[in-house]
Amino acid sequence: MIKHHLTEDLLMAYSAGALSEAFSLAVATHISLCDECRAAAESYDAVGGAVMVSTDAAPVSDSCLSNTLAAIREADTETPAPRLTDTVLPSPLAEYVGGGVDKIKWKSAGMGVKQAILPTNDDAVARLLYIPAGAAVPDHGHGGLELTCVLQGAFRDEDMRFARGDIEVATEEVDHTPIADISEDCICLAVTDAPLKFKGWLPRLAQPFLGI
């Protein structure tokens, strides 16, 4: 049962095609796991369709139609190949990783935390994070928006708990220290506006205080 959802702004921007690739990946990942946000995104698509057909028609050249007719006579039906699936990674993520969790190329970020940066063609950064059960997410600096979607395990932030499918929408004003649940190692997708800068000392400092 998903408790933490996308904002209307993000859903509309995704539907309008206005989000960058990395943020779209976070939105698509959450929607893959959340029927409520999927339904909302589809209604925003319907608004987009209504906006498109209500636009005043612009004359299209005759060659555009004749070229299109030539193209459809050359190519018949096209059925896309089945998409990659995985029990932990929804299709959009599995496609970036090239398979399931075993295909993730983790790099150590210290304190047992691992990360894998996914190749997106924009300024924002999408990364998978692996946080051992009970560990704090390393403190990191980020400028603007941060979206974090849980794929395995859970983490707590203040008095809120985020489990599989939940998405945390954090802005720079939010001062947060997410901590992975003790029960299971946590894997999540985190997308930020600017590259993260891990500060290795903070989790080390925070852990004794947090009684981990």
Partner: peptide, 19 residues
């Protein structure tokens, strides 16, 4: 049309939710 626009104008992929 939206996906093609993202693809051609922004030269980015548009991740789609799982079917």
């Amino acid at each position: 049309a939206r996906n093609r626009r993202v693809d051609l104008i922004r030269r980015q992929k548009r991740p789609e939710p799982e079917d």
